[in-house]
Design a binder for these strands. Structure first.
Lengths: 210, 210
DNA sequence: GGCCGTCCTGTCCCATGGTACAATATGAAA
DNA sequence: TTTCATATTGTACCATGGGACAGGACGGCC
């Protein structure tokens, strides 16, 4: 079990108690007294992990940290664990993607169930992230020209049309097309379109913004 | 404004009060004293709409109704509105897709904001549903044989391979392929693959189960 | 029995995609 | 200056996709 649980709580004795309980349950634990501390030592994606987070902590609050982590595209799931929770905060936290929202005091069993769900979710998120990153890495190897050809290919244009739109000859497009298939490591147009679809949403957003 | 708000609450005077407030705000309102009543007169998808739902009502509870509607693949967003809410119930409701979870008494303004978010979401869900249904309708028009060819085409097989796998000739596959492109109303392989990807998740699940 | 949809098959012929073998030009980096 | 990546283009030749024009076999329905 290499799963890491990151505890963020300003109450030192609570951190210690929780750390002990979780280590006994077989987790590796890191504790942080503030949101800033966690951000400074931001855990990577090497191991499965999750965050156990208090809502009211000095400085940056729990929900604020959650927002910041979302901005940073962190895949670390968050289990909120707090003394008092008003409904609005609870709703907001879950809507923002928290795995769970629990209140102190909490039975170890219940917390561990939440942590395990969070860890399972992180595994899933990491593997999806990895696959997507691989595809993005392939795409990044395309030259600007090849990228243009790629975009038109997956939109269903035939070489002749692509040549016209890019102001060059069909022969040239064939060369680029070959490079695209080679670099994207696919043997068929279907695979290429499939990859484009999986990258699609983000790439299209990028085009709109850029 | 043709948006419909469906109020489910066992408190008759509360229903009446809320109905009046929402009608003044320009909504069309339907009220139900129980979950069963709403299920019996289940609103269709013709108009935008949402449900304002109490948690504790006699018979089927709010969360139970929510689960039932999810099973029925309803697109109607739910805004919970209840007197007392424990954290677990709140978390569960939001995780199950509720648009919001509010507590009585509630300011009209806040409730209306939630309702408007729910209605916007319903519009989005409806349009996505409609587009997907159109594609499914096209797919349903394929004969069994054409469907087989469709599956192999979008997996990147060439006619020769498809012919071999289906134990027939390349010429026959060309004929089926033509029918597939015709019936799916696409002009390019890229479009066909794109459609297959959008339908993909569900279709693959279906294949695994069936 | 006759009609119709589905599935199957054939022959040409052309368009399109893909590859082998080559070559030119440009700009950046060593 | 040399080297390299990039972009470009050409001539063949072959494989694959796709249309036009045909037809046969089978099974369900009126």
């Amino acid at each position: 079990m290499h799963a890491y649980v990151h505890i963020v709580d300003d109450d030192a004795s609570f951190r210690t108690t929780l750390e002990r309980r979780l280590k006994l349950a077989g987790y590796r634990v890191a504790t942080y007294a503030s949101a800033r501390q966690l951000l400074d030592q931001l855990p990577g994606d090497e191991d499965a992990g999750c965050i156990v987070l208090d809502v009211r902590i000095p400085g940056m609050s729990g929900p604020e940290l959650q927002m910041r982590l979302n901005e940073l595209e962190s895949t670390l799931p968050i289990v909120f664990l707090t003394g008092y929770a008003d409904t609005a905060t609870t709703v907001q936290a879950i809507k923002a993607g928290a795995e769970d929202f629990l209140t102190k005091p909490i039975a170890s069993e219940q917390l561990i169930e939440a942590i395990n769900r969070a860890l399972a979710r992180h595994e899933l998120a990491r593997s999806q992230r990895t696959r997507l990153d691989s595809l993005r890495a392939l795409l990044a190897r395309l030259t600007p020209r090849e990228r243009q050809v790629f975009d038109l290919i997956v939109r269903g244009r035939i070489n002749k049309q692509i040549a016209y739109e890019l102001g060059t000859t069909e022969r040239t497009i064939k060369a680029h097309r070959h490079q695209v298939m080679e670099k994207m490591q696919v043997q068929s147009l279907a695979e290429l379109v499939s990859i484009a679809e999986r990258l699609g949403a983000r790439e299209l957003e990028g085009e709109v913004k850029g």
